[in-house]
Design a binder for these strands. Structure first.
Length: 289
DNA sequence: AATAATATCAACCGCGTTAGG
DNA sequence: GCCTAACGCGGTTGATATTAT
């Protein structure tokens, strides 16, 4: 299978998006909904490739995105999920609906990884985060069970997303619309967001568009043709699994694996109220093994 | 105040997967 | 069943901002 060109390289603009381009893109998506990215450049006159349009929308213009200022709880959740899922940022992002995979990936690479290393060097000599080292230390059988858990969780998330799709109209993710922090460029994008907010309230009956604020472009019919992996990563995570991850569920901590002595990192992960939450999260994971 | 070093993050690149002809 | 086109993802780059010297 040959690799096709993503777009016509001639005349395709690269680099940062201008507010005008953003508005053009948003306006088009207002009318047609997200998806069918290929059609956007010719129909809007944007000199951008379809890929760039999709990326701009999903990572920046899409409503419901919270930017910057990761909370401690979010960071801990990311660390937990990264240890469980690896660098599957889209899957991790599905558990943090207000965050984009790109944002989480950036935060991990630029901050969390260093933080883990710092905490780790304070505890052991390993250059790798203790979560990863903890994973390394587990037996092969345990590792395989972790993988199975991963698959099961993905399946469960998908079924939940499918079953709760209809009732997710009043999505909790929408709350970010009113609490989005501003950034340097956000002043212009906030205007776009307001534009979108009006659109959202006015076109909620539009298929494939109604969920745009609550989930992402991924909810639209055109993009529902995603791969199996995309099914888990693209699913609209209902609040329930998130609450589960945050320990708002009752779960029985039986069958949990033997814990190694706590490192500084683990202490960080376990401190405050996150302690119980992490246990519950891990228990939930092991419950599916 | 000027320069260098470092951090941050938006955007790009290339690969894998999959739907459709 | 094969091939092409498109989508989505993860890794990486590069521009800009911030901090240190």
């Amino acid at each position: 299978m040959g690799r096709p060109p993503c777009c016509d390289k001639d005349g395709v603009k690269k680099g940062p998006w201008t507010p005008e381009e953003d508005i053009t893109l948003v306006s088009y998506i207002q009318q047609h909904g997200p998806g069918n990215w290929r059609a956007i450049p010719p129909n809007t006159g944007l000199r951008r490739c379809s890929k760039s349009c999709r990326l701009r929308w999903t990572n920046y213009l899409r409503p419901g995105i919270k930017r910057g200022n990761f909370t401690d709880q979010e960071e801990k959740l990311i660390v937990h999920l990264q240890s469980l899922l690896g660098n599957r940022w889209a899957a991790i992002a599905s558990y943090l609906p207000e965050r984009t995979d790109n944002d989480i990936k950036n935060h991990w690479n630029t901050y969390l990884k260093k933080k883990l290393r710092k905490l780790e060097t304070g505890g052991t000599d390993s250059p790798i985060g203790s979560v990863q080292s903890g994973r390394r230390s587990i037996s092969k059988g345990q590792w395989e069970r972790c993988l199975q858990t991963d698959v099961d969780m993905a399946k469960r998330a998908l079924s939940q997303a499918l079953s709760m799709d209809k009732e997710s109209k009043a999505s909790p993710f929408d709350r970010s619309l009113s609490s989005r922090p501003s950034s340097t460029y956000a002043s212009s994008t906030e205007n776009i967001s307001r534009l979108l907010a009006g659109w959202m309230s006015g076109t909620s009956s539009k298929p494939g568009v109604a969920q745009a604020s609550s989930a992402s472009v991924r909810a639209d019919p055109a993009s529902s043709q995603g791969s199996a992996s995309a099914s888990s990563s693209n699913c609209i995570m209902s609040p329930e699994p998130l609450e589960s991850l945050l320990g708002l569920h009752d779960s029985t901590p039986e069958g949990s694996e033997a814990q190694a002595p706590l490192s500084l990192l683990e202490s960080w992960l376990l401190d405050e109220d996150a302690g119980q939450k992490q246990e519950n999260f891990l228990d939930m994971a092991t419950d599916y093994m």
